[in-house]
Simulated assay, not measured.
Amino acid sequence: MKNPLDSAALAAAIEDVHRAGMPGLFAEVRDGDRVWRGAAGVADVATGRPVTAGMRHRVGSITKTFTAAAVLQQVERGRIGLDTPIGRYLPTLVPGERGDAITVRMLLNHTSGLAEYLPYAYPSLKAYPVLADTGPQSLDDHRFTRFDPTELIGMGVTAPAVGAPGGTPGVYSNTNYLLLVQLLERVTGTTAERCITRDVIERAGLRDTGLPTGPYVDGPHSRLYEAWFGMIDPPRDYSVYDMSWVGPSASLVSTVSDLNRFFGMLLAGEIVSPSSLAQMQRTVPVVSQEGKTIDYGLGLHPMEGPGQGVFWGHGGTVWGGGALAMIRADGKRQMAVAVNLQRWNRLDSSGEPQPHPVDDALATLYRVAMYG
């Protein structure tokens, strides 16, 4: 075994992230049949209740891999065409020439040119990506807001386009995945939640994973602390939150064990067919929400390691919470990590996020987890 699990190194690495300023985090790493689970820090800074590796957690945009898998299953059944214009399915949501030009594939890989709706739904984020001119007020204003997904889509569709349909680099946008949610409902005649639960979550045998029906996380979980680049000091708990602002594009609740099980089965061709998986792994350049250009497939993206081959997976954030799940292309090595603080980097005088010890500590944890 080239890089066997080093339990001591993993335990030290996860503890270092906590020491660097992360209130609490937990992880599971798999190498073949061997499994390491660990946790460090607290789930509640007021009471000191510790985090544990089995906690349920909001995993943000890792949900997109589940949504994409559900769409690919409908492609396999002949109900959706990957290269069919979205206007053929949802003419009122994406009308006219854009509906004819934007395909299902372009929504899945963020090359539709449709803008992100979030700064329009959350007015205090309107200046995004100019972080210094944003503020966290809208996060509090909308804690219990029940958003209508078609209204959110309307905000993204009517906003100025961020690119031409099919043009690269694409621009990461939640508007794309809210449209895919509507597409699933249109072709299956059921809710996207039911479709994703039946075809993906239950098919993968995930016992602690689900899409929330209200603002609460069921079962043992951590509080989620949002700092918004130092503008919320001390960071505020947003673990109770109505997730309709992202719906089934980023609201999944899961565990690190379930995430590893899901990505293991996906890469083994047990969730979608091998030919569908090959489509998911066809990448294009996309500008991420952090402004970095990454390779992105259909709800999956690759990360290269030094001489260790390619890892496939997805990351996600919500207000206060974050997660990352990755699996090596050969399926042998896996990692899922969950954290309970977000946007910990303060801004410098030019409005750019400053380096923080948590960044280096997390990078080290990922390296030890994925490459030994």
Results as ranks from 00 to 15, higher is better:
Ala11Trp: 03
Glu15Cys: 03
Arg34Val: 13
Trp36Ile: 00
Arg37Phe: 14
Gly38Cys: 11
Ala40Ile: 05
Gly41Asp: 10
Thr47Pro: 05
Arg56Ile: 10
Phe66Lys: 03
Phe66Trp: 13
Ala70Met: 06
Val71Leu: 04
Val75Gln: 02
Gly81Cys: 06
Leu90Gly: 04
Thr92Gln: 13
Gly99Lys: 06
Leu108Ala: 07
His110Leu: 08
Thr111Gln: 07
Glu116Trp: 15
Tyr128Trp: 15
Pro136Trp: 08
Gly156Val: 08
Gly166Thr: 12
Gly167Lys: 00
Val171Pro: 01
Asn174Glu: 04
Tyr177Cys: 03
Thr188Ile: 08
Thr190Ile: 01
Ala192Arg: 02
Arg194Val: 02
Arg198Val: 08
Val200Phe: 06
Val217Asn: 04
His221Leu: 02
Tyr225Phe: 14
Tyr225Gly: 01
Glu226Ser: 01
Phe229Arg: 00
Ile232Thr: 04
Pro234Trp: 07
Pro235Lys: 11
Val240Asp: 15
Gly247Trp: 04
Val253Cys: 11
Asp258Val: 06
Leu259Asp: 01
Asn260Lys: 05
Leu266Gln: 14
Ser273Arg: 15
Met280Thr: 11
Gln289Thr: 13
Glu290Ser: 13
Gly291Cys: 10
Asp295Ser: 14
Leu298Glu: 01
Leu300Ile: 05
Gln308Ser: 10
Gly309Leu: 05
Phe311Thr: 12
Gly322Ile: 08
Ala329Lys: 07
Lys332Tyr: 05
Pro357Arg: 08
Thr364Met: 03
